[in-house]
């Protein structure tokens, strides 16, 4: 695993952002919502490391807190999609029949629309707010996880060791947790990293469209949307949060690529 270049780069970037978010819990130069009078749109200086935004808030502090938000949402949604999507996938594959059909149809229904469009509608229904944004980006990430895990579990489910486990009288719960789950761990791990990056991207996209995490919170997508009008006067408002967003998404994708290559030797050297 240590020889895997893309994994290493991804991990290094990811740890960097974790440190950024960690730093923000203890210390930021200023509060992210503190407005400095007469200090709007300042260039980077010793007082404001990365300059200030149009309302006179410190960009560096906002960036740090933004890392906390994006990373937190990404990890949380990744975890949630494992809990919900993966367990539904395994259960669906194990029990089969009507339950399976119903779940597959439900997921098809969710997937009928492109993920961002669906997230957009869910947020429009529920209104803004951090929880609703998380809910909507989780909802759109579940079907993909469900499909992958279900197809992996279907393959495992027909193998001899499951039949043997059933023959010795193992309970459904035991077969699912002790046999199916560990053997489906590869797609689950890889896909959870993908879910994480999708969640970060979709949250930022919602923020950019003005339907994401509401102001005062310094979400990177919202910050980008605010910077639109100041491209000429203060380009750093646009470049820096965007670059952070790109690198964070890139890091999670590299991690998922690296994980896949490492855990699934058949796919090695492809992609």
């Amino acid at each position: 695993m240590m020889k895997n270049k893309s994994f290493l780069i991804g991990m290094a970037l990811f740890i960097f952002f974790c440190l950024m978010a960690g730093l923000a819990t203890f210390w930021t130069p200023y509060s992210y919502q503190e407005v400095f009078d007469g200090a709007a749109l300042l260039k980077p200086s010793a007082r404001f490391l990365l300059g200030t935004d149009d309302l006179g808030r410190d960009l560096f502090s906002r960036l740090l807190v933004g890392a906390q938000l994006s990373l937190g949402i990404g990890i949380f949604v990744g975890g949630l999609s494992v809990v919900v999507g993966a367990s539904l996938g395994i259960i669906s594959a194990y029990y089969g029949k009507k339950l399976d059909q119903a779940l597959v149809q439900m997921m098809n229904g969710i997937q009928a629309l492109p993920s961002l469009l669906l997230a957009l509608f869910v947020v429009a229904i529920l209104g803004g707010g951090i929880l609703n944004v998380i809910l909507s980006v989780t909802l759109v990430s579940i079907p993909v996880m469900f499909r992958l895990v279900r197809s992996a579990a279907l393959v495992e489910n027909s193998k001899d060791y499951i039949v043997a486990a059933r023959a010795v009288g193992a309970s459904d719960f035991r077969i699912i947790t002790a046999h199916l789950f560990p053997n489906c761990i590869t797609p689950i791990l890889v896909q959870s990293a993908v879910c994480c990056s999708e969640a970060i991207l979709n949250t930022a996209a919602l923020g950019f469209l003005g339907l994401g995490i509401p102001a005062p919170y310094p979400e990177w997508g919202t910050m980008l949307s605010d910077s639109k009008n100041f491209i000429e006067t203060a380009p750093q408002l646009m470049t820096i949060p965007g670059l952070c967003l790109l690198l964070l998404i890139l890091s999670t994708q590299l991690i998922s690529d690296g994980l896949r290559d490492h855990l699934d030797p058949k796919l090695r050297g492809r992609s």
């Binding site: 980008l224 380009p235 646009m238 998404i249």
Partner: peptide, 18 residues
């Protein structure tokens, strides 16, 4: 293509505009 996949479209658009 790796970077293109990770690129948030709206930021890319802003850069292109800039």
């Amino acid at each position: 293509s790796t970077i293109g996949f990770a690129m948030p479209l709206f930021w890319w658009g802003l850069i292109v505009i800039f």
